[in-house]
Design a protein around this nucleic acid. Structure first.
Lengths: 339, 339
DNA sequence: ATGAAAGCGCTAACAA
DNA sequence: TTGTTAGCGCTTTCAT
């Protein structure tokens, strides 16, 4: 495994010269210098030289590495589809690496441990994948220690990146309105306090759009604790009567809704439009679901980019970066039957 | 940020003594020595000392870090649910870290680059998450370079960890047989050459169990290129006639099958049993799917453990580690109607 | 723009 | 067991 000294020796220059040439620090304005630089580079390529990241980190006093940290409780640190991919892509483009760590709640709030975690992880900053119910005080600890950190998929005043859940729900509702729907319902599950912010944001976006149109919002819930096998009768009730919705925006349970509609003889989307937030790449039903999706990849890229910005200016608080959601046009929505 | 020298100074000992005490290299048989060690440890804890991973790596000539590598084409490097969690858990328990990298196919087969990737990633070995269609020659390159590597969810002669797909399918079929089913079909999609090994393995397990019972295996396919919206008539055909299966083991499309059954008036599981391989944690339907699941977490732990073993003995080829699949008993299977 | 020398924080070899 | 010394591979002064 060739070292910088090897390259220098093979190229007949000093170690320093080799270092500067390979890192592009030598400006090479003069032609003869330029030639030497090329020569060094060629030798390095031939010998298959790659810098030793640890040695460089030690010397440069930075690791060129970000750490993705998650909690021990996986439900609060779900890894969104595409996120990792986006993070790696962005870091890679900036010659940074990614390491992944999982810390207990206790470790996260202990003022002493966190900074040192960075040393042990060989990271310069944190991508915090603690989407909700993050341990209290963690934020202050990070700030006090001056640790660059970006919060992924969380809504905070600064230093966070999250999808535009409000806008996404608004747009999805607007599309249903545009098609002529008036009785549009919103379906979610019974919300627990401290849930992810997207529950409020999406419902808010829906209600906003409805109010703009002068229509009353209507929420559908499966009563808390409803067993799955008992859900179909509830769904059936929703779809009964003259006031039944002609369209439903569903945070979840879209499949049960779909099944209920089909069993009731309602055709989707002819009799009932369903617009979802399903992140599932595969099809669940015999339709392509019309869906407003969390842009995991873009979220990852933006998070990494923001962290890189923070590396450049660690003390500056950055405004939240809100990423548009991806609208995936499927075939589960259409104009209402009356239209 | 305290360094080892700081600890040593504060404790009034040499740097070396501090190093040995903290790493547990000092045996401390004599009581007075034991006391000093404790003292040093206490000082370190108070000052919040944590070793600098890069410095240690440079000195020890190992990184105490594994790299999870994936291809650029994400379909071939899907991150199984729970896998990352399992990997981190196992590595963490052995004071190792994880970094994640994504390499292009070209980079993976280039004999020169791979070893150096390790340096740049600060890793000692590879967890290869290239479940199928890995670039040819990659294996040889790794071997020639003497790079410790474990293949995750791939079937190879050595150094791999994968679920017992054959056994899982066999057991699922056996359970259906035990319930009294005779006409058990196997549902998958049209297989492309070079697909993941689990296609063959699961079908093999199913056929094996059927043959043991003296029954003819029967495979159901959605014809290649079937549009999703055209799939229901096909499903309907499967469920028609006196020879219709009373149970289906479904690699995929379980939802469509379920929907088709319900629309046809067949009750699940009373009239039709469905046993799946769905990895989805959420419910898709109004039943808890009976499922044989890929044990992502255990897969991760086992992979990491095997890699750690390889660190200890890099040249020894290790026998494949086959992890039992997780059988999740739901309520989509029951005895056949005739029984 | 170059080469010599120092140092990043740690462990490993030595002598005491 | 301890302290001393050397060195891991790299970047960074600082003269030249």
């Amino acid at each position: 495994m060739p070292t910088l000294d090897d390259i220098a020796a093979a190229a007949g220059v000093s170690r320093n010269a080799a270092s500067r040439a390979l890192s592009g620090r030598t400006k090479a304005t003069w032609p003869s210098v330029r030639e030497r630089v090329d020569h060094i580079r060629r030798v390095a390529a031939e010998l298959g030289y790659r810098p030793h990241a640890a040695a460089r980190a030690l010397s440069e006093r930075r690791f060129a590495c970000a750490a993705l940290i998650m909690g021990t409780e996986s439900s609060r640190s779900t890894l969104i589809h595409g996120l990792l991919d986006g993070i790696i892509t962005e870091l890679d483009a900036n010659q940074h690496r990614l390491s992944v760590a999982r810390l207990s709640d206790d470790a996260l709030v202990e003022p002493a441990t966190l900074p040192q975690v960075l040393r042990e992880c060989s990271a310069d900053g944190l991508l915090v994948n603690y989407t909700h119910a993050a341990p209290k005080g963690m934020r202050q600890v990070l700030e006090a220690a001056g640790i660059p950190a970006v919060w992924i998929n969380a809504q905070r005043e600064v230093d966070c990146v999250h999808p535009d859940d409000h806008g996404g729900a608004h747009a999805a509702t607007a599309e249903l309105l545009r098609l002529g729907h008036r009785r549009i319902a919103y379906l979610e599950w019974h919300q627990h306090p401290g849930e992810h912010y997207s529950f409020d944001a999406r419902r808010g976006g829906y209600e906003h759009a409805m109010r703009e149109a002068g229509l009353p919002p209507r929420s559908l819930y499966l009563p808390a604790g409803t067993a799955v096998e008992d859900s179909l009768p509830v769904v059936d009730e929703w779809l009964t009567g003259p006031e039944r919705p002609t369209a439903v925006l569903a945070y979840c349970f879209a499949e049960i809704l779909y099944l209920g509609a089909r069993l009731r003889g309602l055709s989707v989307p002819k009799d009932l439009s369903i617009s979802t937030f399903m992140e599932r790449p595969l099809l669940l039903i015999d339709r392509q679901p019309t869906a407003t999706l969390v842009p995991g990849y873009e979220l990852g890229r933006a998070s990494a980019a923001m962290l890189l910005d923070k590396f450049a200016a660690p003390t500056v608080a950055l405004a939240p970066r809100v990423i548009p959601m991806t609208y995936h046009s499927g075939d589960t929505i259409a104009p209402p039957p009356e239209a």
